[in-house]
Design a protein around this nucleic acid. Structure first.
Length: 278
DNA sequence: CGGCCAACCTGTGCGC
DNA sequence: TGCGCACAGGTTGGCC
């Protein structure tokens, strides 16, 4: 599920349960996800207090009282669910790789079928220089992401604009869905070279990227497969998709009359309207 | 260095 | 019912 809006939705769902909570129990049911889970995972978390939850790109950062920072990435299939204190104990399934319980009795489970996710450690001190975080580009919803930055990132790029926007060094947090949606809204062909977008088109694209992500966060993210928010509620931004997953259907741009097609770029599906995306 | 692809892993859905 | 293949929200190591 997880591009920036879904990760932000998970973070927000965890805030009331984890911020200020002390960890009573932390268990890793396997040694690794995409990377090894630290061997001292349980020892470092147990008894530790969580001060705050932040997000950088698609990473959730769990900042603890002793300076430890847990880096959590959901990969392609990572999910987080909360079983509130006082409700029946959850049944731990095959892909429930991480289980934590707070002193209040809330249980947090990280489930990840494909195990492309990551759980690793850093510290408040080393956050800025951590290998997973140091090269990430500006947050698309922050002030760092402006027209100058976008134009600079696009100029001199020979790849297509789709690949450029998926590059987390150019701008953080976009994935396959929201790139398709943003390019559709902006009327820009995903096949166009990145450098040719610099200038006028970038000016159109930039606020659209912000708008799409903001709207998706407001909708609680997108629900594909059976993905749910931490409380089991479903995000509903998928109902707002205008390009993604709509191969063969009518383009929704007023007066366009085109048909959405699916092509493959960098081994990923791209959905776009050849009629109005130039 | 930039660009591109295959690989990581499991599950599901489709055609035959 | 079963088999094989394509495909799925991400990232990156290795190759040209």
């Amino acid at each position: 599920m997880p591009e920036l809006p879904e990760v932000e939705t998970v973070r927000r769902g965890l805030v009331p349960v984890l911020e200020g909570a002390t960890i009573k129990k932390a268990v890793a049911n396997r040694p690794d996800l995409r990377l090894p889970i630290p061997a001292d995972f349980s020892a470092r978390l147990t008894g530790n207090r969580i001060e705050r939850l932040t997000r950088r790109s698609k990473y959730i950062l769990i900042e603890c009282a002793d300076g430890l920072v847990v880096i959590l990435h959901l990969g392609m299939s990572g999910r987080v669910t909360i079983t509130p204190a006082g409700t029946p104990a959850p049944i731990i399934g095959k892909h429930d790789h991480i289980v934590m319980e707070t002193e209040r009795g809330d249980i947090i489970i990280y489930n990840d079928t494909r195990r492309f996710g990551i759980l690793t450690f850093t510290s408040l001190q080393d956050m800025d220089t951590h290998p997973l975080l140091k090269d990430i580009g500006p947050e698309p919803l922050g002030n760092q992401f402006n027209l100058d930055v976008l134009n600079t990132g696009l100029r001199g790029r020979k790849s297509n604009i789709k690949a450029a926007l998926l590059d987390q060094k150019l701008v953080a947090g976009l994935g396959n869905i929201y790139v398709c949606e943003a390019l559709w809204r902006a009327g820009i062909s995903p096949k166009r070279t990145a450098h040719s977008v610099a200038g006028k088109r970038a000016e159109r694209l930039l606020p659209i990227i912000r708008d799409v992500l903001t709207a998706a966060i407001a909708a609680g993210g997108s629900t594909l497969k059976d993905y749910a928010q931490v409380d089991g509620e479903l995000g509903y931004f998928q109902h707002s998709f205008q390009a993604y997953g709509r191969e063969g259907e009518d383009c929704l741009k007023p007066g366009c009359g085109g048909t959405v097609s699916r092509i493959v770029q960098s081994n990923r599906s791209t959905f776009y309207c050849p009629s109005c995306q130039r």
